[in-house]
């Protein structure tokens, strides 16, 4: 038993008749970046709130940093850092005042506070802005200050709820570098996101849908475990027409449009390739390229979510 981990067992939360989180299990290892993915309303926030000891589970348990979330909520709160989806520092206080407030609330000493303040300022690149009113900072800076304040007390476990929503792509990249740094120092990071490309940065992840975990593993495992059939990516003119013709072929299992490209999951690669060429010739289209690709996480998630909804349909 390591006290830098999160262990979730049969965790369930019901609100009246509605089951928001339904008997989920997972374990987060020390120092890893653990991705928690799912659409809005899938149960992500409810789970995080339970793990932060803000919400009592209806059933099941979880241990965060070695403390039971039901029996020792105060201990849990002391050992975690949390950054909320909505900016939740005091906008009417200065940068410095926010740092001081949260530092003191977490019981930092004068020396500790001085050291951590210097760290946060350089991490968030806020030197010289100590006395700026927080509300006047640009979005990306606020976000980094929020992360800084969340880890002032050097928690060994950090929860980040949609930390990059509303931040421009460049800032998102630097933000992920910060997350990587934290994990490099041995901090366990649980992060929720709906940006699928960000999921690639995670060591491990789970996909949650309607309160159930529908997939878990590393990005690599997820890509190789679920989609066994080859996927062809083609660039051609008239993508929509091409798709509707390809869909009618027996070798085509699934088609989807990705930008200007077409992804086709096929049962047999050779016959698919010749079939596609035939369709293109017969219809006077132009084929620019045709490649077999390894599926992206997006492919996998779309596939898994599709499968889920089909399951539900056949059951209902």
């Amino acid at each position: 038993m390591n006290n830098h981990t999160i262990e979730v067992e049969q965790l369930t939360k019901r609100f009246g008749d509605f089951t928001a989180v339904d008997h989920i299990d997972f374990t987060v290892k020390q120092g890893e970046i653990f991705g928690f993915l799912g659409a809005n309303g899938a149960g992500k926030s409810t789970t995080i709130r339970m793990l932060c000891a803000l919400l009592q589970p209806t059933e099941g348990t979880a241990r965060v940093g070695g403390h039971d979330i039901t029996d020792a909520p105060e201990k849990v709160k002391e050992s975690i850092g949390y950054m909320s989806q909505r900016f939740s520092l005091y906008e009417d206080l200065t940068v410095e005042e926010n740092i001081h407030f949260f530092g003191r609330v977490y019981g930092l000493t004068d020396a500790g506070l001085r050291e951590r303040k210097a760290w946060v300022l350089s991490m968030a690149n806020l030197h010289g802005r100590e006395t700026s009113i927080t509300g006047t900072l640009p979005g990306g800076w606020k976000q980094r200050l929020a992360l800084g304040c969340a880890v002032l007390h050097r928690p060994r476990i950090v929860f980040l709820d949609e930390p990059t929503s509303g931040v421009d792509p460049l800032m998102r990249r630097t933000f992920w570098e910060l997350i990587n740094e934290l994990s490099g120092e041995g901090v366990t990071v649980l992060v929720t996101t709906h940006f699928l490309e960000e999921a690639e940065y995670c060591n491990d992840l789970i996909l949650i849908n309607a309160g159930h975990i529908i997939a878990k593993g590393s990005p690599k495992e997820l890509k190789s475990d679920h989609i066994k059939t080859p996927i062809l990516e083609l660039q051609c003119s008239n993508v929509i027409e091409a798709m509707s013709r390809i869909e009618q072929e027996p070798w085509a299992l699934e088609t989807s449009v990705f930008g200007t490209n077409l992804h086709v999951s096929v049962s047999d690669e050779a016959s698919a390739r010749s079939g596609i060429r035939k369709i293109v010739e017969q219809n006077d289209m132009k084929l620019y390229s045709i490649d077999r690709i390894t599926p992206s996480l997006e492919d996998v998630f779309l596939y898994l979510l599709d499968r889920e909804s089909e399951k539900k349909e056949t059951m209902g």
Partner: peptide, 13 residues
Amino acid sequence: ERNTIEQITVSPV
């Protein structure tokens, strides 16, 4: 309203 209470509730306060 400003959601600052959330950061307080996850803290040991």
